[in-house]
């Protein structure tokens, strides 16, 4: 029986990020949140492996209590149980802390054969939590997985690297981080959403973990990145296209 854990993050929707006029300050109060795009592939991979091999899939997230909204969403995507590691201080974690918290929660409460993480989180995109979690749990791991097969007590993973594909065999228990091309996440229907509200959620509080998690990285500022450009628009009629060509040739250094 294959026991799978999938790790996901509840992140600000990019589209809602606004800056205050005339400054680089970010206005995030009104932003909505969603399951990080890349984690949807990790969730789908876990659920479809479970469908093939039997066993179980649990989803786990670390966040502030506000991330509770993510649980119904994640459960509607197929996992049968969710673990919610939460504390008001857990919304500004850096990757080493997130990985330690996940490791601590998993060690104390979950049994597993395979842990699946996304390529990177939609907000920080540090691509660290998966590898660090594997190190903290002292299990073998690999990243950039574009195809995953389970054979008994080992997995075969195709990794997409800069110079080609590398196929690796890893004994379980193991951790992988997966790329978007690994699958096409299903879209939950009404039935899935209804089923989700009946699935169990395990609450894990910071105090349950019996240790503190100090940051290794300190954020000094987060400011909007400015990209000021001319912003001149032309229409698609012949005269305008000719003007466009003239400007490009003049300023663009083409000969």
């Amino acid at each position: 029986m294959l026991r799978i854990i999938t790790c996901f993050k509840w992140v600000i929707d990019q589209a809602d990020i606004k800056t205050s006029p005339g400054s680089r300050e970010l206005l995030l109060d009104r932003a909505s949140y969603r399951i990080s795009d890349y984690d949807r592939f990790a969730i789908e991979e876990a659920v479809s492996l479970q469908e093939q091999h039997g066993g179980s899939t649990a989803a786990i997230t670390v966040g502030s209590p506000a991330a509770r909204k993510s649980l119904k969403d994640v459960l509607s995507r197929g996992p049968e149980k969710a673990y919610f590691v939460n504390d008001p201080s857990f919304d500004t974690l850096e990757p080493s802390q997130t990985a330690s918290i996940l490791a601590s929660a998993i060690r104390s409460q979950l049994e597993y054969d395979l842990i699946i993480c996304g390529e990177g989180s939609g907000d920080l995109y540090a691509q660290q939590v998966g590898p660090r979690l594997a190190e903290a749990l002292n299990i073998p791991m690999t990243t950039c997985v574009s195809k995953l097969t389970v054979y008994g007590t080992q997995i075969i993973a195709e990794r997409k690297l800069d110079d080609g594909i590398e196929v690796v065999a890893i004994p379980l228990p193991a951790l992988v981080t997966v790329l978007p091309e690994i699958n096409t996440p299903r879209i939950p229907g009404l039935k899935d959403t209804l089923a989700a509200s009946k699935k169990p959620v395990v609450d894990i509080k910071a105090t349950d973990l019996g240790q503190s998690f100090e940051p290794c990285l300190q954020t000094i500022t987060i400011l909007a990145s400015s990209m000021e450009r001319n912003g001149v628009k032309f229409s698609a009629d012949g005269a305008d296209i000719r003007k466009f060509v003239e400007v490009i040739l003049k300023t663009g250094n083409i000969s």
Binding site: I17, T219, I220, S225
Partner: peptide
Amino acid sequence: RLVFGGAAVQTVTCLT
């Protein structure tokens, strides 16, 4: 480094 898909710049220091 860039965060939020590149919409913002995060400045960090390493404490360790």
